[in-house]
Amino acid sequence: MPITYYIVLSIVLFCIGVVGVLTRRNAIIIFMSIELMLNAANLLLVAFSKMHNNSAIGTANAATAGIDGQLFVFFIMVVAAAEVCVGLSIIVMMYRNTHSVDVNFLNRLKN
């Protein structure tokens, strides 16, 4: 597949994530949108990984070319899991104290 397809797809997914962050008030949904952004990046990395693998065909390192990208994605998933763990606990803590996950109510700190 032409790599541009994947790029465009990831960008669109990424931007949908961005729009989600911008338009929703529920902290959890916002967080999900962020996960969507991360996944867009993942997809892009995998696609690039295969692209580099493709362009390395016939050379000596064809076996491992582009493997970096996929490993990076692996690490992203690892990190994302940790992040979700922390993030959700923060949201829960917030909910415990305010009984809301609405980010619009987060306005004690301003100016």
């Binding site: 597949m1 541009t4 994947y6």
Partner: peptide
Amino acid sequence: EIQHAKALV
């Protein structure tokens, strides 16, 4: 550099 690059599917 990616105009004509293809991902190996």
